[in-house]
């Protein structure tokens, strides 16, 4: 990651709009050709794309390889699940002196999920950011495993089996278990996240963040405290991952520790690298490629990991900036 991610430009805005537009027309096309299931696949792509875009804020722009993001994704999901559980079972949630009845109203629980996962990210970020490079990878892995085992230890909420959300969830009168509602709500969230991150990395904050990834000492010499910037980015990125997890839990009405395993963290990193780290929208392509390949190959053969692995290796060898690198070269030629 020697290359400083370039300052976002007008072409990036165009790409973001194009991607959102392409995703937005998936449902009508899917219904027209009689493949409504495609909408669910697209929803899954959108949700993971949100997490990947969030991760890439620290990965591509901050040079921090985090393996904590599946854990934070899960935290977001569990906030939705646990609040809905208490609402459904009519049992108040006691957090120290506070007693809360729980809720299935996503207007309340979604922001809470973002806040809690951002808070968790900030807390773990304070410790993790003392390290660098491979040490940072490993300490975030450690925290991810702790979150994972925490999920397993939540016997009340299903432990390893996971938590089935039984009550009804609602979002301002909309029902997220309806596939079209769920898709467009998720897509709207992706749009907000992409616009936010795109503006952020273009701002002074983004410039400092990208500079710390390149040369921390020089940033320090300018009198800017790099850790504060990195920590802010890390918390924000964690909040976005939490949002993705919360959306997934709402759509599937299910969340489990399996969603928090370190392998899933690795999957998110792979999505970012496959798509390309130097833009905000690259990880969206990466998430789509990863999930579609996984689904497509595994419905062809049970030995799908072989072709999947070979494709990943091939992309690592030949595509230096992931898919966006290939697209850029194709556009230029």
């Amino acid at each position: 990651m020697a290359d400083l991610a370039p300052t976002p430009n007008r072409r990036d805005w165009f790409a973001i709009l194009l991607l959102l537009a392409v995703l937005a027309v998936v449902p009508p096309i899917a219904e027209a050709v009689g493949q409504p299931f495609a909408i669910k696949v697209a929803s899954r792509v959108v949700v993971f794309a949100i997490a990947a875009v969030g991760l890439n804020l620290v990965l591509g722009f901050g040079g921090m390889v985090s393996l904590l993001h599946a854990g934070l994704f899960g935290v977001g999901g569990y906030v939705i699940g646990i609040l809905a559980w208490h609402d459904f079972n009519g049992e108040a949630l006691h957090l120290g002196p506070i007693a809360y009845a729980g809720t299935g109203n996503l207007l309340i629980s979604l922001p809470l999920a973002v806040l809690v996962s951002a808070g968790a990210a900030a807390l773990m970020g304070v410790v993790s950011l003392r390290t660098n490079g491979a040490y940072f990878i490993m300490i975030t892995l450690a925290f991810n495993q702790m979150l994972y085992y925490l999920g397993v230890a939540l016997q009340k909420y299903g432990g390893e089996d996971g938590l089935q959300i039984q009550g009804d969830l609602s979002l301002a009168g909309l029902d997220p278990s309806k596939r079209l509602v769920y898709f467009y709500v998720s897509l709207a969230a992706l749009a907000v996240v992409m616009v936010l991150v795109q503006r952020l990395v273009g701002s002074r904050f983004g410039m400092v963040l990208r500079a710390t990834a390149q040369n921390e000492r020089r940033v320090k010499a300018l009198g800017i405290p790099p850790t504060r910037y990195r920590l802010t980015a890390f918390a924000l990125s964690g909040g976005i991952a939490g949002l993705a997890g919360a959306l997934m839990a709402s759509g599937q009405q299910f969340i489990s520790p399996a969603d928090m395993s370190w392998v899933r963290s690795g999957d998110l990193v792979v999505m970012c690298v496959l798509g390309g780290l130097t833009t905000v929208w690259g990880p969206v392509l990466g998430a789509a490629l990863f999930l579609l390949l996984e689904l497509g190959l595994s419905s062809l053969t049970n030995a799908w990991q072989l072709p999947f692995g070979l494709i990943v290796i091939g992309m690592a060898v030949w595509l230096h900036d992931g898919l966006i690198g290939a697209i850029r070269r194709w556009v230029q030629s």
Binding site: F37, S256, D259, W304
Partner: peptide, 16 residues
């Protein structure tokens, strides 16, 4: 289809 022992993957396959 292969659920990879992951609940969310199994769910997607069932939906499909």
């Amino acid at each position: 289809a292969d659920d990879q022992a992951k609940p969310d993957v199994g769910r997607q396959l069932a939906d499909k």
